[in-house]
């Protein structure tokens, strides 16, 4: 079996679904964050494979930017989690319901 574009895309889709499942089902804020990272990585894989199979480097430049933005996002998000933990002593989404109607 020759590994073509559709194989890479399938892996990317499965990984994205896995990340989504983690975001929906897990209740720990940190694990939800890790699942988000998994989803971003899946998008990166799709971009790189498109870039490779369509003879175009722009996709790889986009991945470069995504990695940078993901790093910024992680730092801000983790700072928020630390600030929340200081107030509530919990990193559990079920304990963070102040904004619930």
């Amino acid at each position: 079996m020759h590994a073509g574009l559709e194989h890479y895309l399938t892996v990317s889709f499965l990984l994205f679904s896995l990340g989504l499942l983690g975001v929906i089902l897990r209740r720990n804020l940190l694990v939800i964050y890790m699942s988000l990272e998994l989803m971003l990585n899946a998008a990166n894989l799709a971009l790189v494979s498109f870039s490779r199979f369509n003879d175009n480097l722009n996709g790889q430049v986009l991945v470069f930017f995504i990695i940078t933005v993901a790093a910024a996002e992680v730092s801000v998000g983790l700072a928020l989690i630390v600030a929340l933990y200081r107030r509530r002593q919990s990193a559990h989404v079920e304990d963070l319901t102040t904004m619930k109607l």
Binding site: A3, V11, N44, L45, V48, S51, R52, Q60, I67
Partner: peptide
């Protein structure tokens, strides 16, 4: 996987 896609720089950055 990035290396297999010949994206060597991105693999290192990753």
């Amino acid at each position: 996987l990035f290396v297999l896609l010949h994206a060597f720089f991105l693999a290192a950055v990753q």
